[in-house]
Design a protein around this nucleic acid. Sequence first.
DNA 1: ATGAAAGCGCTAACAC
DNA 2: GTGTTAGCGCTTTCAT
Lengths: 338, 338
Amino acid sequence: LPADKPERSSIVDVANLAGVSPATVSKVMRGVPSVRDDNVQRVLAAVKALDYRVDPMAADMRRAKRRIIGAIVPELKSEFFGTMVTKLEEYAELAGFSLVVASSRGSEEREVMLAGRMFDWRVSGVVLAPVVSDKGPACAELARLGLTAVLVDRVFGNDLFDTVTSDPTTANHQIALRLHQFGHRHILLIALGEWAATMPQRIASFKAAMSALDADVRVDVIMTQSLTDPMRAAVSAYFDQTQPDAVYALFDQATLIALSEFRRRGWHCPNSVALVGFDDPAWMQVTWPTISTVVQPIDAIARRAVDLLLRRIAGDDGPTKPYREACTLALRGSIHGG
Amino acid sequence: LPADKPERSSIVDVANLAGVSPATVSKVMRGVPSVRDDNVQRVLAAVKALDYRVDPMAADMRRAKRRIIGAIVPELKSEFFGTMVTKLEEYAELAGFSLVVASSRGSEEREVMLAGRMFDWRVSGVVLAPVVSDKGPACAELARLGLTAVLVDRVFGNDLFDTVTSDPTTANHQIALRLHQFGHRHILLIALGEWAATMPQRIASFKAAMSALDADVRVDVIMTQSLTDPMRAAVSAYFDQTQPDAVYALFDQATLIALSEFRRRGWHCPNSVALVGFDDPAWMQVTWPTISTVVQPIDAIARRAVDLLLRRIAGDDGPTKPYREACTLALRGSIHGG
DNA sequence: ATGAAAGCGCTAACAC
DNA sequence: GTGTTAGCGCTTTCAT
């Protein structure tokens, strides 16, 4: 790396120009009150004249941790994690931290590497959204390195770290109630095997809600391991056999697969079949009909995660706890009464 | 949280354990060959024993710049910028740099602030995707701070920095050709006023291609400033008046608005009306029909941006240049022959 | 209220 | 080859 062209002014330059010591400049920059007012003015003038800016890394050199929070997410292409990262950044900055984001790109190996990088960067804490679950190697690595961390999204609850995830229970209850109320007695759930940590719970929670309501309602489940052709084929094959009263797609892409299969068959939604989605990407409000969906509380998860992390950073060493933030239901055109 | 937070070992600890000087440890860590082999072994053993990791920030303390590249993007919710950031990260890491991402959240003010933060972090260079255009205040700030930078996406071409953006010309040519070939003589373009820098060019490029082919083809344009209701209302009103042969939606959401309006009217796509989209979010492959679309070369843009940036960082100070990476056409079910 | 001095963890110049 | 010495830009005692 070649040396830089423009001279960057340091605290010493400011001190010289202002005719004070670097220590005094430092105090002024940090707002320490015990500096004589005329000195404050001279320093401020010099700062302006030299266009001086504190180097936060160098400033943190002496402390053990830097004022940085790290975030590791499986990917950044989806609206879910994109929003999550945006919120984490927002809350971290509100607390005076910078957020450093890294994408593990679906690789647990890379996830471990990134945990190491966060350590190297001396972050104060890490928010990790694991690729698979909180039983993965990256969590172990974070613990081994002695990093402060909070785990989000695809997590169960963990004795190493606090965890935060969404809770579909209430929303599923509301859906079950509404679907039943409008006479739907045959419901298809579409799930994806990939998300080991979250899918089973979404399914179980809905089934529980529905069977508590009416044990005779038929609830079928289609679950494939991959999103692409096998999923569409499975759904299509199911529809060839039978037409359910309602479809509840447990991840966003499945919603569109279902909707398009309705169309192909000329089934009208919601009149001849109702549809409920999961997650709330922008496009769910521009389809026809618009999609009723279970919305994950991304903001609440991010806020809670940062809040917990800051507590731990501040020294809280109470027992770890799993937190669950309630999903909400967005009622739109794809179900009756929506 | 583990009770025994391991003390972080420094280069001095390793040196002491290995019975050598810190300088020797440093050489071993950086792979400098002029170290006696038995010393290399002892250092490596000590590194392993102490679980030592180099602190890259401290290591960069002495150099003017750190091995970091900054990225500033308008938002992270969309698949476009999510993918962009992922690619930038990939190419930056390939070159031995870390990527630090920040979202300006649609605010030019915040964008300026983030430019300052990149300076503070002593990044080697910045990839900026401006909220509005390369005429904005953030670009000026980057220049004022003497930062090395490359501008991407919503840019025209700039004498301060290299710019990289997508070029829809070829793809538009192909679309025009194909639509014309299948007898479409009345085409509706749907655009959004928000993206000041890119929309006019998409429109102009398609109009040029089409009129070169056949001056008599009718090309209408609907453009609103906001994405929500006004857009849908405008499209709906247009369709109430007349049914075009084809619709070309110049941003992804408009595609779904158009498709849903077709449905509402019972227009069959592509038989009674063809549809072409812009950008290639995952959902375009699970609609029915699947959507033919002009795909922005995100990978090429990211690769080019990082490549240019690295050149500039290495000291290239030739005249700045605007680069354009060609969009491609994804042919799918929503147009004839797709 | 202020400044001299001693680091933080590391690298680089220069002796040995 | 290796260790010694000086920093990088800043903060933080601790005298004054």
